[in-house]
Amino acid sequence: MTISIHASVNGEPCQFQCGTTDTLLKVLRENLQLTGTKQGCGTGDCGACSVIMNGELVCACLVLAVECGQADIRTVEGLSSAGQLHSLQQAFLDNAALQCGICTPGLLMASKALLDKHPQPDETQIRYWIAGNLCRCTGYDKIVRAIMGCVS
């Protein structure tokens, strides 16, 4: 069965057709061609598919697409605006906070969700907040520094 869903993706109204078993991750990547959101595990354990849905950080692989009616969904593709990188994106670049880069979109969205809710986290808060986002390359040091650099 195919269902038609109306939602907002990165501030733009959006309509897509999905099956009842399709995840938001599948719809983002395959229907909407927004491949910035990555699949690392499909079971909500790695955080590579982190997106912000109605202001909450979620794993897109654990959200069914049919749950997304009228939802406000933000992905890494919507993080920069008018050609201007978000301060987190710039901080990740300046701090060399990515090596292979596969976890980066998810970590950026997780960090944005953190700073939206807690504008002044300390290092421990940052480390616990992003504990659901696995990075196998960096050892987290430069990622944590990048986020700390964006604390207002």
């Binding site: 990547r29 491949t35 910035g36 992905t75 993080l79 990188l85 994106q89 670049l93 980066t104 979109p105």
Partner: peptide, 23 residues
Amino acid sequence: TRPVRPDGVDKVTGRARFGADMQ
């Protein structure tokens, strides 16, 4: 020195294409 990597912007904006991103 420590310049920004050439592929950096693609990787922080979700534009970089990894193994599963080709269709």
